[in-house]
Design a protein around this nucleic acid. Structure first.
Lengths: 141, 141
DNA sequence: GGATAATAGTTGATTTTGTAACTAACAACC
DNA sequence: GGTTGTTAGTTACAAAATCAACTATTATCC
């Protein structure tokens, strides 16, 4: 008779924690801006690291190119980002946030800061540091 | 100019870590048993906590009832679990693993043990304990 | 005890994702 | 300089998740 506590299975805990913690923040981008998670992630990367190619977004955010492609198309429709052709290589297109996209980024970053602070408020500084460190290692970031 | 490191956003780290860590284990149930993640989770809960109603699986595993309903149907087709009508209330049906379902559970638990051990091998005992504690709290388990 | 509400679970329609094939542009090699 | 191979990104189709409506059964309340 095998006996195994699901709580001893880290991927399970990670998934549960990820789902639970994402749920609350989802309101910020979904309800407020009618945005999908992938779209929000693309905005985050462009806002944080500046204009880049779709390929770079894929690599950094580890999102498949088809998802990025669709997210970029949606964000362009919403006028939150623009594509610019790079003369050197017409296969690439430089993605940049528009003023409106920047505003969304700024707003969501504020929300993210508040949200995160509340999320880890119950942990000590040391616990927070270890948690972060472990997650980064597991994620391979 | 807002500046925010994505690594400071815990839900992001949690999602990345969850995705990365789940990917490897996915092979065990997907390729080996042609199983979906939800199916595997249902098996895990039945194997760990014994026979229960679909409703209970929903509550424990925090999976929506439609997903559970479909997972149960699939597992029944594969003859990994059986439904038994409870005479007291014919709306309920007791879900139990079959012998074959139990065997799958036992096998996957072995895999899970190995997988988890490898995943956290690089962390100290203290780190492992803190990580687990934090995740359980965030997940609200 | 009969109308109304609540519950367990299923089914169907819509949305989102994932997989694979495709187009367009460039690179390289002979 | 034309054939072959790569790369960036899109599109088409299949698989899966989500949401809402539905059925069947039990509980409640007058």
């Amino acid at each position: 008779m095998t006996d195994y506590d699901l709580k001893d299975f880290t991927p399970y805990l990670l998934n549960m924690a990820a789902e639970t913690s994402s749920l609350g923040f989802q309101r910020s981008y979904k309800e407020k801006y009618g945005m999908l998670r992938t779209e929000w992630r693309v905005i985050f990367h462009l806002g944080q690291y500046g204009p880049m190619h779709a390929k770079e977004v894929c690599a950094r955010a580890r999102i498949h190119k088809t998802k990025v492609s669709r997210a970029v198309a949606a964000l362009e429709r919403k006028r939150l980002l623009t594509r610019e052709e790079v003369s050197a290589d017409r296969r690439h297109e430089k993605l940049s946030l528009t003023r409106a996209g920047r505003a969304v980024f700024d707003d969501l970053v504020q929300e993210a800061r508040r949200f995160d602070a509340a999320l880890v408020a119950g942990f000590t500084q040391e616990e927070q540091a270890i948690l972060k460190n472990c997650l980064i290692k597991i994620a391979g970031l």
